[in-house]
Design a protein around this nucleic acid. Structure first.
Lengths: 199, 199
DNA sequence: TTGACAGCAGAACGTACGTTCTTTACGATG
DNA sequence: CATCGTAAAGAACGTACGTTCTGCTGTCAA
């Protein structure tokens, strides 16, 4: 994060046009197409504009040289007078439909699944019945991680613990017993996020 | 939404790799670069794969011919908790439902903001310090709703209650006092979702 | 054992892309 | 009135991109 606002008003207009285009197509096109978007006729000037927007921290480039938007590109500050000044109000989601939350919680889409939480055995960790667990699939975990294990053919969400050299599954609720798995403990994945929807 | 699953398992693997790449770079690169991503050496075969993924409804093209993901591309599978059998390779299976978390939580993007939770005054409702509150801006709420109110120029997250005909803000933690606002109670919005990121 | 087909590699080609350089127009400044 | 900086146009160039075709290799069925 560098400048956070375009140096001059004209670049702000160009940024707005680019944001509108991106909202439609979810991509930044070639310089030639950007000439139409910006309403100018010179590719070199388009490049100059994008270079400035890059400096200002609104766009960046992939290793392949493709222009992509940064998070600043989507940030919209809350323009409500009643909002106390200096509050940590974050981005409202989406100019266009950029997926802010998914992006935050999911590092590796191909290894991530969503599993609904059943029961209140983890209520001590603030995990309630009906919550959605964001789980990254892998079979190795550390003691202290909250893991999804497969016990008796069912998913179960518990904290991974160790007792006397053996792994155990600890619920975060005194009403439930600690699970001592016989044989090998089959771990499906570890908890990387939690989502709850109200109403 | 057309097919919603790749015709064969190999395309599902390619899709997974493309999703992982996109999570990193938020763009689909050139065919040449996709060769590295997919682990193959032929541009023509990359094109064939993307054509099939387009048919399956995971990617599409802009008027400029640039490949972009569709909404299907981002949808994560929600597992059925009681049926873990045959789990690991059900990538792209047609049954079960797929969801994008942002779409789940956010109905009205223009009225929704994300506010970090500070403190443990709502810990009884499973809302912890550091969680991210998904808040829909509005100034009317019902008793029982969890609301974001503005008290002394600061955001505060509490349950809306009523005592003797007057609204009060109730924390979900016995260590904290019930707030009796003097004058009018300024409500910023109501809690519609909660997001937590582990590690 | 011989097709046939899926899965992939590799080359060939034309175009359009990004980059750089030069030129122009114009308002502000001194 | 000269000069300077900003905003843009336009041309020139080499490369890398997308497309298409042809060729290769393994697998399975007849």
């Amino acid at each position: 994060m560098t400048d956070s606002n375009p140096s001059n008003t004209r670049d702000a207009e160009y940024l707005a046009k680019l944001q509108d285009y991106y909202a439609d197509w979810k991509s930044i096109p070639s310089y030639a197409s950007l000439c139409d978007v910006f309403g100018i006729a010179s590719k070199s000037w388009v490049k100059a504009i994008l270079d400035r927007l890059e400096k200002a921290g609104f766009v960046e480039r992939t290793p392949d040289g493709i222009w992509i938007p940064t998070s600043n590109f989507f940030a919209r500050h809350v323009a409500d007078a009643s909002v106390p000044a200096g509050m940590p109000v974050m981005v409202g989601s989406s100019h266009g439909d950029y997926h802010v939350i998914d992006d935050m919680l999911i590092d590796t889409p191909s290894k991530t699944t969503l599993i609904p939480v059943k029961g209140d055995s983890m209520i001590g960790a603030g995990i309630h019945d009906g919550d959605l667990a964001v789980v990254e699939k892998r079979n190795l975990a550390n003691v202290g991680d909250i893991v999804v294990a497969i016990v008796d053919g069912e998913f179960t969400l518990k904290t991974l613990g160790k007792e006397g050299g053996k792994f155990v599954l600890r619920p975060e609720n005194p009403d439930y017993p600690v699970i001592h798995p016989q044989g090998t403990l089959e771990i499906f994945g570890i908890l990387v996020g939690l989502v709850r929807k109200y109403k």
